[in-house]
Write a protein that binds this DNA or RNA. Structure first.
Lengths: 342, 342
DNA sequence: TTGTATGCGTTATCAA
DNA sequence: TTGATAACGCATACAA
């Protein structure tokens, strides 16, 4: 049972306006190639019928969609929102439309989304991080869909990326933390398997520890899924360890805010009893109480540059090349020197 | 310059497998209508070529996409995220895919997105709030695209909606606030023009005031765009008014958190000096410090029900009908009785 | 400036 | 169980 009346087509419009379908098509795509009089007739017919071009047919005939797909791990929090917004704004400037999909951090869903966006005719794809099944890269290759990676910069990789060095970003922060006298460190991380950002951040802390003469194996690392509740739960476990960590790194600001909340519930003073460090510097970090020490990531610039690169590539054939952006530790109130005698 | 090698088509697969295109198509859509032997041949050809069906062509031939569009005001914060997630999960259960778009709270962008999703073949649309240009409803009508409204329940409207009564929701909260002795009330709102939720919430406060014998005109209302920074700025202005408000309602939790932050910066104690009340009860509300008093909205149930209704409508022709859900005031720590003598 | 005719990659109908 | 073939709605090369 389907009562849908078929939507008006180009042909319907052409009949109503008393012209050919070609003319209607031109009216829409190259308005100045058609006489003003005809154009007016056509436009009012379009208006009258409530005509709207069929995207599928258009894509098929034109063999491009001016659509770029972006696949992010989650829309649940603001982590990717700002970068994506900048990306979209930039694309819009160049006449491209963005299509978003999210994966809940699950590789198999990401694969599904990649295939879905490609099937929908995405002219290119923006993906987060390098690490995924080689098979899917081969698929994208045979489909002829260019891919730009973001949130990561890896000089080793042949694939173009616009991002930052996650290891260095976290290492710089860890060095500061160690300078504050902390030696009992912990890390609430996303699952590191199949997540190059999480792995790099973990290594960053380890490298800083080694550089400071600490033993990187002493880092207590808990892997969990991203979420406020999860951050809180992980913090709970960490506080039971002996010796108790005096500084807790978090894989992102959302986890850190969860840890912060649990600390409050446990009457553990931050930063007096324990320091908490986030990553990303989303708005949440400044709103948290106390304001969160975190690693600032150039969300907007990353999005903007990625958008520009892809648009330029599709329109002018400019090769995609990697761009490295910087991050910086932002010291707010959740980090303090380690308490003497603690 | 375009080096894109054309992607493999159904025809390519059929040649490689030595069968007709019809057989390949059946293999994909009705696998048990084809002999196991042929199926294996076809599947391995598909694998080999990295074939992926073209969505546009498929949509055109099948005259449906199994895609449902959802258009929300913003992805910048978590306000719509949870409901959307539930919506998507429910759709997935029924074999539908969700396409999201956001509008930055701008009607003209919403219109653009509606047209874009319809052009992309969305079988139905989920929209937030009733209020929009009648023209666009007419357009959807002629396109034969069913629409379900959410985040709102309006018994008056003929259009189906799955949501709650924004006026009553806010009124219930305002009654509590007034019971705490507050008489100097203020409201940091989204723009009420062309936003039935904002308008209803404003009216809800007014109704509660009237019921309590207050003058609804005494409500200080500031309209602003949604954002933490904007909430902070509006709070600033409110604190300069005489008499100074003792309770500040906010159109959503994001604004409320901004107000909370500014209060801290101004050394205005919450809730001792001023009470702050949010709306939505997103995760942020519990993480805020002090935890935010707010109106709880049944995000997930709303999304789930909306998804179910649309899927059921498209698959079985079940008419869309309105569902009213409840909200409830959640009293946390940002609301306290008015200070005597203040 | 406008019209004609063809092809884009599927699905679905009808025959075989 | 399989194969031809006609739509589907649009863009575009070519002709007028």
């Amino acid at each position: 049972m389907n009562l849908k009346r078929p939507a008006p087509t180009l042909h319907d419009v052409s009949v109503a306006a008393g012209v050919s379908t070609a003319t209607v098509s031109r009216c829409l795509n190259f308005p100045d190639q058609v006489a003003k009089l005809t154009r007016d007739k056509v436009l009012s017919a379009i208006q009258l019928l409530g005509y709207s071009p069929n995207f599928g047919a258009k894509a098929m005939a034109a063999r491009r969609t001016n659509t770029i797909g972006a696949i992010i791990p989650t829309m649940e929090n603001a982590i990717f929102a700002r970068g994506l917004e900048a990306f979209q704004e930039e694309l819009r400037l160049h006449g491209f439309t963005m299509l978003v999909a999210s994966t809940s951090y699950r590789p198999e869903i990401e694969e599904e989304q990649i295939r879905s966006l490609v099937a929908r005719g995405a002219d290119a794809l923006l993906l987060i991080g390098h690490e995924r099944d080689p098979e899917i890269y081969r698929f994208l290759e045979t489909q002829g869909v260019p891919v730009l990676i973001t949130w990561v910069f890896d000089a080793e990789s042949t694939r173009p990326s616009v991002g930052f060095d996650n290891r260095v970003a976290m290492m710089e922060m860890a060095i500061k933390v160690i300078e504050f006298g902390h030696t009992e460190l912990a890390f609430i991380s996303a699952a590191t398997a199949r997540n190059d950002r999480a792995t790099a951040r973990l290594n960053g802390i380890g490298d800083a520890m080694i550089a400071a003469g600490l033993n990187a194996d002493d880092l207590h690392c808990i892997e969990t899924t991203y979420g406020i509740e999860e951050g809180a739960a992980a913090f709970d476990k960490l506080m039971l360890k002996t010796p108790r960590p005096t500084a807790v790194f978090c894989g992102n600001d959302v986890l850190a805010v969860g840890a912060l909340r649990r600390a409050r519930e446990l009457k553990i003073a931050v930063p007096q009893d324990v320091s908490i460090i986030g990553f990303d510097d989303i708005e949440l970090a400044q709103v948290a109480y106390p304001p969160l020490t975190t690693v600032h990531v150039p969300h907007r610039e990353m999005g903007r540059r990625a958008g520009h690169a892809l648009a330029d590539h599709l329109k002018n054939g400019t090769p995609l090349k990697s761009v490295q952006l910087g991050t910086r530790p932002v010291l707010r109130e959740t980090l303090a020197p380690v308490k003497v005698g603690s």
